[in-house]
Simulated assay, not measured.
Amino acid sequence: MSDHVLVINAGSSSLKYSLIDAASGEAAASGVVERIGEPEGHHVHHGTDGESNTSLKIASHEDALRAALKAFETHGPSLDDIEIAAVGHRVVHGGSQFADPALIDDDLVAAVNDLVPLAPLHNPANLEGIQVARRLFPDLQQVAVFDTAFHQTLAPHAYTYAVPLDWRDDHGIRRYGFHGTSHAFVAAEAARLLGQEPADLNLIVLHLGNGCSAAAVRGGQSVDTSMGMTPLEGLVMGTRSGDLDPAIHAHLVRELGWTVEEIDHALNYESGLKALAGGNDFRELSISREAGDARAQLAFEIYCYRIKKYVGAYYAVLGNVDAIVFTAGVGQHSADVRAASLAGLERLGIQLDAERNNTSSGEARTVSADDSAVAVLVVPTNEEWQIAREALSLVRLAEA
């Protein structure tokens, strides 16, 4: 039986896809269709013939997936030659119902639709991708892999907010956490790098990209995480504020007459590094810092200070820490962020090796000093591979 899984990540105006060998992690092809529903869309496909770029009007997610299938035919690899074992879908919010990947049927679609109020920016697009794939691949098993699932091991004292009971019981208001597929993949890879079993390790995993989250992982299970009911809570991000006094919302309503929608948009799309430094691209922020831009420097300091606070908090939660793991675009590539976020924590047994930290590499590696009691690792994430592995494992189990 084939190990290949077609992984689909449908956003509100985009559709990303990868054809992954779940055993090896090798991508036979990948691509992204952007600006769905706009006058001119854009499609990039990486296949056996190299990279192809196409501009065309893409009215819907169905058109996007059909464009992807045509690219497989034209630029390879041909799906007639590669048997697909399953289709794996990234679904952002699984609520408290889904602690594991799940086979997609009408009941699951209804359940994910019921969760739309918890993720109105994400779940509708995820559902659109699922519905389109079910129509175009009616004979393939389809699996939903939830961003929140890895964090369903949080204890009640970690996920419960101190809010009225009916908010919690009737409206599902609690901490769920996100980036779960990334945290799960990176925690397992960190254990492999250290030559130990995940069950024997306490880790602090820092997923630092345009979206950022921290997780405390004990014995391979998440025990706390920085994102909350939505992906807005926690670390400073590219365009999201992270932690914020909730009374600010009421203040903006009273003083400025803002609507809930205006506040929500500002905190999700106009805040974070974008608000602090004028842009959310960390590479541009680094260039501005080097040029002496005071706004960029302050943004960098705020960003790293927040990370340091979470490292300290999760060190206390775990009691002892075997490794701190950096991942995602900023976590993997910014030596300055790693150094600034951990500076002054030597008393906690955390000691970077400057030369190792400043050496660029695309491989998982150790950047701490040999005598550091806590290892500091850089581990590239691979959420598509994690989704493929979880999807294939569930399909094989269902067929057994």
Rank of each mutant, 00 (worst) to 15 (best):
V132Y: 09
L140V: 09
H251A: 13
L56D: 11
V91G: 07
T366V: 15
S222Q: 09
V374F: 04
Y17K: 02
T153Q: 03
L108Y: 08
S213G: 09
P156M: 11
L352C: 13
E40Q: 15
H75I: 03
L203E: 01
S368W: 03
S96L: 12
G279K: 00
N268S: 13
S368G: 14
L65C: 09
E255Q: 14
G37Q: 05
L256T: 06
L273G: 00
I350D: 08
S361C: 13
A68L: 10
A68Y: 03
A133C: 14
Q141H: 11
Y315W: 13
P380V: 01
L15I: 08
R90H: 06
A400K: 14
T225E: 07
A266N: 10
R135D: 12
G180F: 03
H249F: 15
R254F: 11
D114S: 14
D322M: 10
A86N: 06
P101M: 02
L342I: 10
E255P: 02
A110F: 06
H171Y: 15
V376Y: 02
Q386S: 13
A275H: 05
A28M: 12
E62S: 13
Q97W: 07
A187W: 00
A28K: 10
H42S: 14
V325P: 00
D371E: 15
L318W: 06
D293N: 07
N123E: 10
E128Y: 02
D370P: 05
A190C: 08
Y17E: 08
F137E: 07
G211D: 03
G219A: 10
D3R: 11
D245F: 12
P380Y: 01
A328H: 00
L108W: 09
G220D: 12
L154S: 08
P380F: 01
G319N: 09
V5M: 03
C304G: 03
R389D: 03
E262C: 04
D370Y: 06
P380D: 04
L136N: 03
A373M: 11
A373I: 05
E51D: 14
G195P: 11
A328W: 00
G228M: 13
S52V: 13
L103W: 06
P164F: 07
I324Q: 01
I204R: 01
F146G: 02
D293R: 00
L108R: 06
A250R: 15
Q196F: 06
K308L: 04
V109E: 13
V205C: 05
L267I: 14
T74V: 15
E40N: 11
P117N: 12
L121R: 06
A23N: 12
Y315M: 09
